[in-house]
């Protein structure tokens, strides 16, 4: 098992390294280093400092090594727009993003786990079909379309909810729902399938044969076992989907988080901010994936034995 964990961690580090390398060369391919790393209108002394630090007048390989050192030191240069260290700008954005992510994940869990269980228990009746139909809708409608229609109805027609910013709890409602749509759809499907797998197992029959009430059988023996699968999916697939959805939803609702920062950096071509943003979000997703993988192995003895 230790070997498996080490291998997972090694793979994580290699993935991150590959992402950083990819981002560096993509940026350098698109223009001269002075343009893509410094931008216009930087004070003379800052400019000299940056050229020195990132080796922008040296060979591309020197620049690459300097860039890697910058990544390790958390130095990605200065924002083109705000002319201050990128790391500071990103740091200010983390908390609002975590708040939104937290509320979206909470809503997703609260809605989709019961729905998935219901869909599995009543798979052949109209209830099961209705739930899967809903999940399908969540999957097929892009989150910006959900957001647009919500804004149209609840903000502009009914005047119930605010659109821009994150000041009050009311501000959370629409962004949370817009972000959760596709996550709920995905997790409901996964929960249903995991439950269906568990329902056919021998230990469920044994539990019933012992005379346990049906609710206890379903919740204690069924859901608890399906839960392991569901949690692993939450870490492996939902993390990436949430990161992508976060970008769009924050941009729509002018949420002062990482996603909004990335979109405006992309539009303004603020390359240092964009690079750091992409790398740090990818970092978060890859780390969550690796941790989930490890937690999954540690939690489940069957896999623990099999994977050695």
């Amino acid at each position: 098992m230790t070997l498996y964990i080490l291998r997972t961690l090694l793979k994580m580090v290699l993935t991150l390294f590959a992402i950083i390398t990819l981002v560096f060369f993509a940026t350098r391919m698109s223009g001269s280093p002075l343009d893509t790393a410094l931008g216009d209108g930087l004070a003379e002394e800052d400019r000299a400092l940056m050229i020195e630090y990132f080796g922008l007048d040296r060979s591309i390989w020197y620049q690459y090594l300097a860039y890697l050192r910058g990544v390790l030191e958390g130095n990605f240069g200065l924002s083109f727009i705000e002319r201050r260290p990128v790391a500071d700008i990103v740091a200010e954005r983390i908390w609002p993003t975590l708040q939104l992510l937290g509320s979206a994940l909470a809503l997703t869990l609260v809605v989709s786990v019961p729905l998935g269980v219901v869909a599995a228990l009543w798979r052949d009746s109209w209830i099961g079909s209705a739930v899967m139909g809903l999940a399908f809708i969540g999957y097929a409608v892009p989150n910006f379309v959900i957001a647009t229609f919500m804004v149209l109805i609840f903000a502009f027609s009914l005047n119930w909810l605010p659109v821009v910013g994150n000041g009050t709890p009311w501000h959370f409602i629409m962004p949370t729902i817009a972000m959760s749509g596709v996550l709920i759809a995905a997790l409901t499907r996964f929960t249903r399938n995991a439950m269906l797998d568990v329902l056919g197992q021998d230990f469920m029959r044994t539990a019933r044969a012992k005379g346990l009430p049906e609710t206890v059988v379903i919740l204690k023996h069924g859901l608890r076992n399906a839960g392991v699968t569901v949690l692993s999916v939450l870490g492996l697939q939902i993390a990436g989907m949430a990161a992508a959805g976060n970008v769009v939803v924050e941009a729509i609702f002018s949420w002062p988080g990482i996603g909004e920062l990335l979109v405006s950096a992309a539009i303004m071509r603020d390359y240092p901010v964009l690079q750091f943003g992409v790398i740090s979000v990818a970092f978060a997703v890859v780390v969550v994936n690796a941790l989930t993988d490890i937690a999954y192995v540690v939690a489940d003895p069957r896999i623990r034995m099999a994977k050695g």
Partner: peptide, 13 residues
């Protein structure tokens, strides 16, 4: 491993 929307932002910018 990498959410593609992010890479797309970078490439388009």
């Amino acid at each position: 491993a990498v959410p593609f929307t992010l890479l797309a932002l970078l490439i388009l910018a």
